[in-house]
Amino acid sequence: MTTRTTPDAPGPHRLDPQTGTAFELRAGQVLRVVDPMGEQVSDLTAFSRDDPREWLSSGRSIDYADTISLTAGHVLYSNRSRPMFTIVSDDVGRHDFLYTPCSPETFKIIYNHEGEHPSCFGNLAEHLGRFGIAPDAIPTTFNIFMNVSVAPDGRLRIDPPASKPGDAIELRAEMDLIVGLTACSAELSNNGSFKPIDFEIRPPREGCDLGLM
Rank of each mutant, 00 (worst) to 15 (best):
M1W: 11
M1C: 07
G11T: 04
G11E: 04
G11H: 08
P12H: 03
H13L: 03
Q18T: 05
Q18Y: 03
T19C: 07
G20M: 15
T21E: 06
T21A: 15
A22G: 10
E24Q: 12
L25R: 02
L25W: 10
G28K: 10
G28Y: 10
V30Y: 11
L31A: 03
V34R: 15
V34H: 04
P36L: 06
G38A: 13
G38I: 10
L44F: 15
T45I: 13
S48E: 07
R49A: 14
P52L: 06
R53W: 07
W55Q: 11
G59C: 14
S61W: 13
D66W: 15
D66T: 11
T67C: 09
S69C: 10
S69W: 15
S69P: 00
A72F: 09
G73T: 03
G73F: 13
H74F: 12
V75D: 02
L76W: 06
Y77T: 01
N79D: 15
N79H: 11
S81H: 15
R82V: 06
V88S: 00
V88T: 04
S89Y: 12
D91W: 15
D91R: 09
R94T: 10
L98D: 05
Y99K: 11
P101Q: 09
C102Y: 08
C102F: 08
P104H: 09
I110S: 08
H113S: 14
E114R: 14
E114G: 02
H117P: 01
F121H: 13
F121Y: 13
G122Y: 05
N123D: 08
E126C: 05
H127S: 02
L128Q: 01
L128Y: 05
G129I: 03
R130E: 14
F131C: 03
I133E: 00
I133P: 00
A134I: 01
A134P: 00
P135A: 01
P139G: 05
T140L: 08
T141R: 12
F142Y: 15
F142V: 00
F142S: 03
I144V: 05
N147S: 03
V148T: 08
S149V: 15
V150Y: 00
P152R: 06
D153F: 04
D153Q: 06
G154I: 14
I158L: 10
D159V: 01
D159C: 05
P160E: 09
P161D: 04
A162D: 14
K164C: 04
P165S: 01
D167K: 06
D167Y: 07
A168Y: 11
I169R: 04
L171K: 09
R172A: 05
R172G: 01
R172V: 03
A173M: 08
A173Q: 06
V179E: 06
G180F: 13
L181I: 04
A183P: 10
C184R: 07
S185A: 14
S185G: 06
S189T: 01
K195V: 01
P196G: 01
P196C: 04
F199D: 01
F199P: 04
E200F: 07
E200Y: 04
P203E: 09
E206C: 03
G207Q: 13
G207N: 13
G207A: 10
G207R: 14
D209R: 15
G211T: 05
